[in-house]
Amino acid sequence: MMRPSLTELTAFMAVATHRSFRRAADELGTAPSTLSHTVRALEERLGVRLLNRTTRSVSPTEAGLSLLDRLHKVMNSLDEALDATAAFRGNVAGRVRINAPRVTIAYLVREILPLMTERYPDVEVDLVADGRLIDIVSAGFDAGVRLMEAIPKDMVAVPFGKPVHFLCVASPAYLERAGEPLTPHDLTQHRCIGHRLPSGKLYKWEFERAGQELTVETGGTVVLDDEDLMIEAAASGLGIAYVVSWIAEPAIAAGQLTPVLTSWMHAPERMALYYPGHRSVPPPLRAFIDVVKSQPSA
């Protein structure tokens, strides 16, 4: 049996990942009919069906899923081998486009970009703030940043940085006036600063204690879509806010905010850079990944 070509394997990975010849064709810059012929030729060469096709859907067979999983690992190793030659052809240059929530971009600007500038001065980092979980491939991004649990399963995830904690915070003046909530259920008797998601829905506050998970729909007179403004509103005594810890820490240190319900807060989550594993990783993105991996995780 002749070994399949890299073109055939790349075509199969794109179709199997997107479960669509059209979307795979858009990504690879070819026609859906060309991809169909390429994948059919691969199946004939291997002597096994890799995709189930109907007029409305495409899905990998058991053999296809097995091959896809193995190819992801092989392609990642191949990308690393090719990227290792960068040191022999001069400085890495080019642009890398990253999609991430605004609060995460603040972290990248503070912790990642200084190292990128130092190590790879010829790489342009284009950061786009977007709270929606979008299709980064079709939107033209090289990678995205999200919490691990929100990353699509068909993406390669690179955890980095310290675990993300969430906090409930309020000003000392508010707590003196309204009292401190002892359980999440007490929040119904308090003013809470709502967090509107990019979808337009209000974020439901998540809590956990002794294995018991609890979600609370909070109400209040203030609803915001920016965590810095939530901190400002809470510090002004407008109510209790549910925010990422690193955003609240300066105001806590200054005595402007006090954490509440600390024993009920959800377990820390990891943040991760993610990117498609079925395509070649360009050198600027590989450079960004290397810097991300160098971040302490404790």
Rank of each mutant, 00 (worst) to 15 (best):
A235M: 04
K293R: 15
R119H: 13
V137A: 03
V223A: 06
A157N: 10
L175Y: 02
E149T: 12
P296L: 09
E118C: 14
D135G: 09
T10I: 06
S57Q: 13
S57Y: 10
P284K: 02
R19C: 13
T34H: 05
A81R: 07
A25L: 00
R102V: 09
E149Y: 11
F166V: 10
R177H: 11
L257P: 14
P184D: 11
L229V: 08
R89Q: 11
W246M: 14
L197G: 00
M155R: 09
A84P: 08
V58P: 09
P152K: 07
V123P: 03
T215W: 12
E269F: 09
E180W: 01
L28Y: 01
E43C: 07
L78W: 06
F12Q: 02
L147S: 11
P4G: 13
A267Q: 10
L68M: 08
M265H: 05
L42R: 09
L202D: 03
N52G: 09
A251D: 05
L202W: 04
S294F: 08
A248D: 03
V74C: 02
I105D: 01
R23A: 08
F288M: 14
P282N: 09
R70K: 09
R49E: 13
I98A: 10
L108V: 00
P114V: 08
L113D: 02
R70P: 01
F88M: 13
R196L: 07
A251F: 07
E44Y: 11
D226W: 00
S5C: 00
L224D: 05
V123T: 03
E27P: 08
A93D: 01
V292L: 11
E227K: 10
R53G: 11
R196A: 09
V58W: 03
L46K: 05
L78G: 06
A87I: 11
T10D: 09
L65G: 15
A173M: 04
H72Q: 14
